[in-house]
Amino acid sequence: MATDTVICKNCALDSKTPGITINANTGLCQFCEHFTPLSREKKEEYRAQMDTLFASPPKHRGTYDVIMALSGGVDSSYALYRLKEEYPHLRILAVQFDNGFISDTAFENAQKFCELTKSTYFRLVLDNNLLRDTFKKASRSMDAFPGFAKYRASDMCNTCMSIIKQKIVEMAIQTKTPFIVFAFSPGQTEIPFVTLTKPFMVWIRKLFDGQLKTMGVNERNLYLMDEDIISSTPPETEIMIIHPFLVWGYDKQQFKKECIRLGWTEPDLHDPNSSNCLLNAYAIKNHYDKYHIHSYAYDLSALIRQGNLKREEALKTLHTGFSDEAIREVQRKLNPE
């Protein structure tokens, strides 16, 4: 790190990152300066809202009450377990997206937690060659996603997460499932409940289509919500996305302990930021090489601000290098020739 780089004295963002300014008087970045912690009243309101929603999901709609995005990593495994502990009556369909880079251990973990919670397991598989080509295009693209999205995640991870969202919303429409749960940390999202209306679904489809087009992806329909399914949906259709960690609070170390106690196994990925996907380390490095932004710095800094993570731990995570072996393995998979 250059000697003139200043790190925000509250979080882990630094002046070397494009767009981050550290106020010379306060020593704080612009995000810490504008941060307002969530009040106790608001937290209680969110809790009551989630309890009300899950207490009585709309009856006689479909086979499931919830579609849960399950990666097999710590966060989503714990979220699935806790969801079922707190609301045992929920009928959950857990969807694991096989992006071609998921570790065998993550597949085993996901299935183990589905058995434990008596949830239905579904592995979402798309054409692996096309996916590899799409990730390669994402890694080579510049500015396919807007400025702020570059802080949120790498271009490769934004692409992968957008595919999951599109396909899960499509599944929710098809199966008439009222709720979708994503185990995003409070650093990855600030909004606990998002209602998707039909016009909004059409809009987010169009936005992702544009982003894929910018990357040069031709087989876009494979990744987007099916147009016919959306257009045949009644205009009053609504699906709610819920991010439960914004209601429960977030303590990664405690979640990991609890998951291990329940039989979760740690994969050998040599990546302090991911417990399921091999692509992650490569994606972070690629993003840093392109934009000089560490794609976990904003997420971890938000967790520090909210009191969910110690600053020292975040700085240690951000400065831990990646194993060359893990990066080379992804390179080999993306460029098989």
Binding site: P18, G19, I20, Q30, F31, H34, D143, F145, P146, G147, F148, A149, Y151, R152, T189, F200, W203, I204, L207, G210, Q211
Partner: peptide, 27 residues
């Protein structure tokens, strides 16, 4: 303040925020 403008200093009132890459659905 939230880093959405990515170096831009101003915005046209009638410009598309999504097509000009200012925000996406999460933004």
């Amino acid at each position: 303040s939230r880093g959405f403008l990515d170096g831009k200093n101003s915005l046209n009132e009638h410009e598309s925020l999504t097509e000009t890459g200012v925000i996406d659905s999460i933004g």
